[in-house]
Design a binder for these strands. Structure first.
Lengths: 242, 242
DNA sequence: CGACAAGTTGATGTTACTCAAAAGTGGTGG
DNA sequence: CCACCACTTTTGAGTAACATCAACTTGTCG
């Protein structure tokens, strides 16, 4: 598996991810590479985008984790969707049609302006559109997860999902990755309190389902985890001919 | 006592809704009217669309309530999103990019094949695209609702949201409408058990927040309901010039 | 070293679930 | 019209899951 960090140069998860979604021309690949090089840094806990903002020309998350967030008046918050390296952030096929949500940096980030597809229907354009469709799929999963799963199921499910997404972006292995967010953020994502997240993780450790040291997770018993979460990968089409 | 049935001709909520989202030409209006007349019936609890199905050419929900549903192996289910009269069901701006979810009829339905926009960018096309974007906004709300709200908040929120959506479709008043789904379905939508939905509704009745007789709901204290749910309308743009 | 954030643990309270049964509702056929 | 059925709503009692409050520990960084 591609241990991206060993490769020369910067890791470019957005290229790995998008190349899997649309048949990119070499020009488009180049554009993505140069975009990646022009990434700017944003530090943890900063807002990347505010609810009230207009949809921008699109951005690519190069490194770090972010989240679409809803804040409530009484201080509660819910992470609606987790954004991982390689993800497309606020691109939209037409101006002004994006539902604006606040996006917050959960860790330090690097964000690059998205390379613009030169025409509708190009490989890059297809990849972007697919990317948006996939996000919608994850929203559906998120609803099912927090609506009907208990704490163990939610954690098993999200750990599997994150691993799968990181692997697709070539950023990690699916069963062994760096989890750079706090248990409190995990709670905000899963609709649980940080205390309960902690206890549940403890329990999963004693069950030898996972290992968690520092912020390195290892999924020790993927079979059982998938069983707990009734897990199945989110299916989506690969690149198609235009 | 649905007032709508007393009006001459068939009610056409999809026209009310879509006309608010895109500047429809008179030809497009006609097309929607004839589409509405060609509606077919589907009886309650039937699947309208299965997960595995290809994205179709699109359908309009003319009457009745449906839901995007996820079923779990152990019999639990979660209604991911509620589909109300006038809603666009499986239309997608490009073939095959829709995330397929099972759609189930919660009541008897009437469904019409969606009139196809004749070109990208037309008023009808814009209305459809906006409609899809709005659905995404409701998905975000749904996640916040079930992730961080307790039972009272969830019910207050959903009752307000449903009222608002029905009113926008010209199908009811926002504070006084027919609720044709069972409390069990409401539970599946909100991630609660039917028993707990019932108790919570009882409590809201004693608080004089709502009135619920048969399946007619009246929101008696909208101010307080909005306060409970920290409610604010989902903002979206009206028709725009092409 | 000290300060601060994150993780951990215990004790206790509350919300929501489970199981169970009764009562109301609507439709169907005799 | 009534009897019967299936479904929904309602209510009660007991339980489990999760939240809350609070303290203590660990780790990290200046």
């Amino acid at each position: 598996m591609p241990k991206v960090d060993d490769l020369p140069g910067e890791p470019q998860p957005h290229i790995n991810l998008l190349a899997g979604l649309g048949a990119l021309s070499s020009i488009e690949m180049k554009a993505l590479q140069t975009a990646g090089a022009r990434a700017r840094s944003i530090s943890a806990r900063r807002e990347v985008l505010h609810e009230s903002a207009q949809a921008g020309p699109g951005s690519l998350l190069i490194s770090g984790w972010a989240g679409r967030v809803r804040h409530f008046q009484d201080g509660r918050r819910q992470i609606l969707h987790l954004l991982l390296p390689g993800d497309l952030i606020d691109w939209c096929p037409w101006p002004d049609l994006l539902t604006p949500t606040t996006i917050t940096a959960l860790t330090d980030l690097k964000i690059a302006p998205a390379a613009q597809p030169d025409r509708i229907g190009s490989g890059l354009w297809q990849a972007y559109v697919q990317s948006a469709a996939i996000e919608q799929g994850y929203l559906f999963r998120q609803i099912g997860r927090i609506g009907r799963f208990d704490a163990h199921e939610r954690l098993a499910d999200i750990l599997l999902e994150i691993g799968e997404r990181l692997e697709r972006a070539g950023a990690s292995e699916a069963t062994h990755y760096h989890l750079p967010i706090t248990q409190e953020m995990l709670g905000d994502l899963l609709g649980l309190t940080p205390v309960h997240v902690n206890r549940t993780l403890q329990h999963m450790r004693t069950q030898k389902l996972i290992e968690l040291r520092g912020n390195l997770v290892r999924l020790l018993n993927v079979r059982e985890l998938k069983n707990i979460a009734q897990y199945q990968s989110l299916a989506f089409g690969g690149p198609r001919e235009v």
